[in-house]
Design a protein around this nucleic acid. Sequence first.
DNA 1: CGCTATCTTGAAACGTGTCAATCACTGTGG
DNA 2: CCACAGTGATTGACACGTTTCAAGATAGCG
Lengths: 250, 250
Amino acid sequence: MHPLDSTRALMDGLGSEANLCVKCGSRSVGLCAPLDVAALDDMSGESERLSLDARDTIFHQGDTARHVYTLTEGMARLTRVLPDGRQSVIGFRFSGDILGFTPAAEHAFGAEMLTRGMVCRLDRKRLEQLFRRYPALERRFLDLCVKELAASQDHILALGRFSAEERVAAFLVSLAEAQERRGRAGPVFDLPATRADIGEFLGLTLETVSRAISAFRKRGWIRLHGHSGIELLDREALVSLGSGDGADAA
Amino acid sequence: MHPLDSTRALMDGLGSEANLCVKCGSRSVGLCAPLDVAALDDMSGESERLSLDARDTIFHQGDTARHVYTLTEGMARLTRVLPDGRQSVIGFRFSGDILGFTPAAEHAFGAEMLTRGMVCRLDRKRLEQLFRRYPALERRFLDLCVKELAASQDHILALGRFSAEERVAAFLVSLAEAQERRGRAGPVFDLPATRADIGEFLGLTLETVSRAISAFRKRGWIRLHGHSGIELLDREALVSLGSGDGADAA
DNA sequence: CGCTATCTTGAAACGTGTCAATCACTGTGG
DNA sequence: CCACAGTGATTGACACGTTTCAAGATAGCG
């Protein structure tokens, strides 16, 4: 994977285009693709839809991991809290992504909505049964997991080696790509994450994120539309800055 | 997972105590545990042992992912290179860990030995066949993968939120734990990674790592034994500093 | 229309990076 | 067994980027 894809893949998360909830989505793509009709009926019998507002919690860090979730609408953030209260945003998730899948007893991180939206949840024990009955489903989870692992490693690279502006540029590009891959084709993209959220994701303070965004704006690379809209005017510049082929090193 | 386990779990990697290579290890633990004798014979037929010196490359970033490896002896580092030449150490691996498992066509990172050691390699196509024949094996890979993903997220947290000394403390503790879990019980642990390796893993320069280690030494927390031995004198202090319950925040 | 969140901007402090010199270990050859 | 060379580690001084703290500006909402 090219480092450019870093945050892109990261934000894609466990299950781009995947869909656990048959009621809520297409039967022809995503997780369910390898399954036959009987399997789909098995799954749809147990999944529940939940409607959520912005800032609602999907699950808390430390909660017993009873369910696996599919985000079918909206955007969420995954957060991890340290004993001393420091907090970090582990990643962002979009419609189609899977949340909270883990073999551990408890969720290692919390998940909260950034926008209003919808999730489908499936009982974890039910999923285990489905794994036994439909091995192809388990294979799909393994592929997604390895993919997300690669994305996490790219994010580690970014956090360890990228400057503030490089990180913000990579983030903006990947945000745009994530939304494009989900059909939002317009020049203006949603930016539901606050500067604080972005900062906690990128290992920066909210002020530093703001300064980077201001710098891009002053260079004519982006245009802001209110507090939750952003337009990429010079995508090339952002991609170049955010992909680690910076002119400074090389 | 407690943040304390951050680097520990990370360094554990895909497959603590796992063993792909039947010739080289026990049949009663690790990856092969869920398999029966027939499966083990299937696997042992195709795995090869390779002996490697320090600094030898196991595989390069970008290589076609033809094999999956088990590190049976020694310590290795995983590295990822950016287009501009910046490099980052993604993680360290110890005997028993699995290397290079990916559903992608190419290895996303390179692997090099830090010490002399031994690896077993299994043809990837063969592994795919084994997955089909022994679903339990695939399930084990999925569990390991999710575990490593959680570890990566903890590392992301550390890179984004920890100070230099906190990161180095966490690293030293996890290194000791990784070696203890593999049987090395003495007070002096191997530290085959150079300051530069550690720095690239923790997102720091080698000088900053050196300064942190010197600071710990001057506080009486550790004692160095040559260039590759380290003794933890005040483990509590290191654990406390490295687990994010620092007195500074809270 | 005004309140509140969020964002922006500035100035100063701090931590880490950079560059450079010296030191210490380790392995080699005398 | 010791001296030497080479690599890695340490330490210092300074520069730079990011954080911190503080003040205002802007957008969104009731």
